[in-house]
Design a binder for these strands. Sequence first.
DNA 1: TACAAAAACTTACGACGTAAGCACATCAGA
DNA 2: TCTGATGTGCTTACGTCGTAAGTTTTTGTA
Lengths: 210, 210
Amino acid sequence: MPRTPLSRERILSKAMEMADAEGLSALSMRKVAAQLDVEAMSLYNHVKNKGDMIDGITDLVAGEITLPTPDFDWKGEMRARSQSAHRVLMRHPWAVSVFVESGLPGPNMMTYLDASLGCLMAVGFTPVQADLARNTIDNHIYGFTRQQLARPRRARDFKRVAKAEAKAIPKDSYPALHRRSLALADTTAEEREDFDFGLTLILDGLEALL
Amino acid sequence: MPRTPLSRERILSKAMEMADAEGLSALSMRKVAAQLDVEAMSLYNHVKNKGDMIDGITDLVAGEITLPTPDFDWKGEMRARSQSAHRVLMRHPWAVSVFVESGLPGPNMMTYLDASLGCLMAVGFTPVQADLARNTIDNHIYGFTRQQLARPRRARDFKRVAKAEAKAIPKDSYPALHRRSLALADTTAEEREDFDFGLTLILDGLEALL
DNA sequence: TACAAAAACTTACGACGTAAGCACATCAGA
DNA sequence: TCTGATGTGCTTACGTCGTAAGTTTTTGTA
């Protein structure tokens, strides 16, 4: 009986699906192969090695991010693309850590970097300023997303975990930490998931440099 | 001939040394044991498992960071502790990624978090604001440090790599990226390693909230 | 000296990434 | 139709990993 042939696309697509569902550490050549009804070594006909496979799905993720365009309203553009990146990374939780330490970026990532730098340089930032600015913004995106992923999404669960955390922290040794956990338990999702808090800090600060 | 007995401290100290020298991925129970003239399984008498070992050395790193104290000059305090954290993480390159996704923090890390939050809350930030602020600051520290670690430290090497990078980026497809690499090649270390650039953005922005 | 507890060692299992080589299918040119 | 090349998938195998289980050795105390 004929099987649909393997291909780089089929491999990457299944690998992405598995990473989204179970995290990067659950991705092994053997498991991806099994999901495709194939032996592990067959993947190597279409993919250089595991690193290449991960680079592949990482660049697919990069391709999902909405690009900024050069515009008078550069802050709006950067805010929009930051929120897009944030949403995309929330959909692909494993990707944050890979984004953050990817050596040579793939084509989609390059396009994303180029568009961001281009948007900033078009309104007067020097290339070096634009580089620093983009780094600062992306650091915020990555860090914020990572932190949000580490917390329960559902309000009820969040509250429960925050309260348990507060109880587990000795009030005498760590008073501020303790107080924070208590306070967090009583926040709304809007308050605590305030992506724009740090972003606005950064964008307004950047504007003052122009 | 008598051997100095194993202990948690001896294990963590050697593991830290190895991680500093060769990176986290080169740390295996077998290799750490070998460096201590001992078999792998012996480590398990003093350390719960590999994760516990890594948590252990991570908290040692956290302990090296200078703590902020509540002070009228909270910006100075936060800047000092940020620079300290940056320096410490540069000494222990492997630690950035662990810091960033550590689940339950160790005692030194808790102390560090508590001191930072305490410093911010003492000058009037609400607990939730302090939490967001500390996150934003730490995200900047981690991101900036990671990026700096990825680049050559020596000026000559940096220039060479930046130029090679510029040459490798197609000018037509990625004009802004290309221009940035060219510009970076002509910067001084002070310009490009401007840790305070983003930090000041954030601190000044925070001050406006008070 | 005797004995219990702690520490170190041995062996083994089931993962992992991937090198090397083999088997089979597809297709080109004769 | 036959032949050989090319590419795709499979088999086997090696060295690495974390660590469970069981055994021996060392150490501290009575």
